[in-house]
Amino acid sequence: MKILLAGDSTVANCPTYEYPMSGWGAHLAPEIYSWAAVHNFAKGGATTESFREEGLWRELLHHAVSGDVVLIQFGHNDQKRGHLAARGGYADNLRRMVAEVRAKGATPVLCTSVERRHFSGGRLEATLGEYPAVVSELGDELGLDVLDLNSWTRRLYAELGEEGSKELFFHFGPGEHAHWAGGLLDDTHFHERGARRVAAYVAVGLEALGFKPEPEMLAVF
């Protein structure tokens, strides 16, 4: 079985010069290597539209076969494009993606976007508008599974608190990182510590949805 990933920078394998910045997809393989191979097609800056226009979606579909699972997580960058409104172009593009995955005999799973870390007055605030809700609604409409990463990451950040949750993200002071010599306080992109936490949750979610083969089937493989 293959797990194929479509998404933006919060899912993608980051360039080596950005280390230890990381999307969660870069750390999924160690969690599930015993029963599935991970193919990560996610790209920084991608939307549901650009992912198709740049040929990444075509490449992903080319590799998808019956029995594979395709995880789809977009929203961060769609939110910045007026024509990709949650209940407009974004939802339409996701419907098309789901249909095309199913046409290949693979199983689509939608993921709500991981939340940004944005605290105000000590309270965590939602930043993604209607995008997570629309993904959940599409799950009901299309009869497919949804991994609600948005709700889970919100709970995680709130549990860790405003200070504790910083360790999940890419925060560096001046002179601490060669690529960002002036420092960087990024509350969207994960430090590899945070990416690993999300990847572990995704792996548990996939098992809970029944995608992990039974032990006797693993023995056959």
Rank of each mutant, 00 (worst) to 15 (best):
A103I: 00
N150A: 02
A178F: 14
E159S: 15
G89H: 02
L144G: 01
S120E: 14
Q73L: 14
H179W: 14
H83N: 05
R95K: 07
G89M: 03
G173V: 07
L94V: 10
F190W: 09
S165C: 12
R87C: 03
G82H: 09
G89Q: 02
R154M: 14
L128S: 08
N93W: 03
S151A: 14
W180A: 13
G143W: 05
Q79Y: 08
E192P: 04
G182T: 03
V101W: 06
Q79T: 10
D68H: 14
R58W: 03
D140F: 11
V109I: 15
A85Y: 11
G89R: 08
D78H: 06
D92T: 06
L149H: 02
R96K: 09
L60Y: 12
V135F: 03
S113C: 07
E162H: 15
V109H: 01
V134M: 02
R58A: 15
G88M: 13
Q79P: 08
K104N: 05
A85C: 10
R102I: 11
L147I: 14
H171R: 12
A91W: 03
V69N: 04
H171P: 04
S165P: 12
H76K: 01
L168A: 09
G67W: 06
L124D: 02
V146L: 11
N150G: 06
R95G: 13
D140A: 15
R95N: 12
G88K: 08
I72R: 00
E159M: 06
K166H: 07
Y157R: 02
D145V: 10
L128Y: 03
L147P: 04
T188F: 02
L147K: 12
A158L: 13
L156G: 07
R154I: 11
E167T: 06
R102H: 00
F74K: 01
R116Q: 09
E59L: 02
L184F: 05
P174S: 08
R87Q: 10
S151I: 05
A91M: 01
S151D: 11
F172W: 15
E115D: 13
L124C: 05
P132W: 12
H189G: 08
W152K: 03
E130M: 09
E159C: 02
H191V: 00
T112K: 09
W152D: 04
L94W: 13
K104T: 12
A99T: 03
V135M: 06
A158G: 04
P174K: 02
E115S: 15
G105E: 07
H179G: 05
F74T: 04
